[in-house]
Amino acid sequence: MKLAYFAWVRERIGLAEEEVALPEGVETVGDLLGWLKGRGEGYGAALEAPEIIRVAIDHEHVDHSEPLAGAKEVAIFPPMTGG
């Protein structure tokens, strides 16, 4: 599965994107954020407040309860500040 990071999530993790193989038990967006948070210091800093983090699966906004099954690209980013 491809993960894409934007804005300060990208900066804190230190990567714009990466391919990951999900461990067993990671089934929803919320599970994914929890798993990523424990992968290292940068991930921990990016995801220290997961409740404010926005996620899109294959370019569509989703809630943290959304299942990951079938997702090709999961994007993780802060609240949007365009306009």
């Binding site: 934007f6 906004h61 980013f77 802060p78 609240p79 949007m80 500040t81 365009g82 306009g83």
Partner: peptide, 8 residues
């Protein structure tokens, strides 16, 4: 555009 278009 401000709250759901992915711009930062």
């Amino acid at each position: 555009m401000k709250t759901s278009a992915p711009f930062w």
